[in-house]
């Protein structure tokens, strides 16, 4: 199996397109860094009476919450108030210097870019063998098809992790150079089920990365499935990327009207909604979402493997 993964890895990294992807990821991160650096300039207003300000803010929020009828809004105000109260109680100023971790968090928006690239690789990894004609020589080795497809899937996941690692490490390095390390250890204030807790920022960021990647992993799996079932990489790329960018919005729209929206893949990919914030459809829970994700994952994999195993390699 290790040898098969080595083979797939070699086939990815001997193509110039892969390096274009990595370069793009680094360049876009750098541009983002430059943008934030430029924005950061300007006099820093240090508010010495921030505790006073927060108390006033909370009063305002409380009033707004009473007027609001939307549940989502009320949840949001509740969270803000809780965090503000925690800050006042533990003397944590909201005016933090923009530092390396703030940048890493901002740069994590680019996970969608790594998702895009991984989808492209995933969509091609089976379909290309067919279009190159190399599938014939690949499948007449003393290795059964299940192992070959498994090695391809593992390679795609490794590639995703590789891109995420590049993004994380590069944005940390760039952030450290541009914005400097924070003077004291920063904690992240986490609001979960009405409680506020402090969390190490690096742990928080890694968790954030992990949860943000679920979207991408699921769509990558879908692209992999389409690639294996239809042997068509354009279809796999097109459909998966379209859903990557719009799936969330569509599901949010549907969820306004219909409660079955909770069974749609994209209602469940954002597990962050349970850690902080509120679920998209009322009554959804973390275990429910994990179960839904598993169901989708298994369906995708079954389709991919069954068709690949049964396929007659004709033309």
């Amino acid at each position: 199996m290790v040898n098969l993964i080595k083979n797939e890895w070699m086939k990815i990294f001997k193509r110039p397109g892969t390096y274009v992807m990595i370069a793009l990821l680094i360049i876009v991160t750098a541009i983002l860094g430059a943008f934030f650096k430029y924005q950061e300039k300007g006099p820093d207003v240090v508010d010495n009476h921030w505790e006073q300000t927060l108390i006033q803010e909370n009063d305002a929020l409380n009033r707004q919450m009473k007027q609001s009828s939307s549940k989502v809004e009320q949840q949001f105000f509740k969270k803000e108030i809780a965090i503000n109260e925690y800050r006042i109680k533990h003397h944590i100023s909201p005016h933090e210097q923009y530092n390396v971790w703030s940048f890493v968090k901002n740069a994590s928006d680019l996970i969608v870019l790594t998702g895009l690239f991984t989808i492209i690789i995933s969509a091609g990894i089976v379909a290309s063998e067919f279009s190159w004609g190399t599938i014939k020589l690949l499948l007449i080795r003393p290795i059964n098809r299940t192992k070959i497809l498994t090695s391809k899937y593992i390679t795609v996941i490794l590639f995703a992790l590789f891109l995420l690692a590049i993004l994380f490490i590069f944005s940390t390095l760039l952030g450290a150079v541009l914005f400097g390390m924070p003077e004291q250890t920063v904690s992240y204030l986490n609001y979960y089920k009405g409680h506020v807790t402090e969390q190490n920022i690096v742990v928080h960021l890694l968790m954030y990365y992990g949860l943000s990647s679920i979207d991408m992993i699921m769509l990558t799996t879908m692209a992999f499935m389409i690639s294996s079932v239809f042997r068509n990489s354009s279809l796999a790329i097109g459909l998966s990327i379209f859903l990557l960018f719009t799936g969330g919005q569509f599901t949010a729209l549907i969820s306004l009207k219909y409660s079955w929206a909770k069974y749609i893949l994209f209602a469940n990919t954002d597990l962050m909604q349970y850690v902080e914030g509120t679920p998209m459809v009322e009554g959804m829970t973390m275990p429910f979402s994990i179960l839904m994700l598993l169901v989708y994952f298994i369906v995708f994999q079954l389709l991919a493997f069954l068709t690949f195993k049964k396929r007659d390699v004709a033309a």
């Binding site: 080595k6 080795r141 003393p142 290795i143």
Partner: peptide, 18 residues
């Protein structure tokens, strides 16, 4: 049909590993 973006030797390595 071989992997055109690989060298002849890399192609052989690829199949040898299998």
């Amino acid at each position: 049909e071989m992997y055109k973006f690989l060298t002849g030797y890399q192609n052989l390595i690829h199949y040898a590993r299998m």
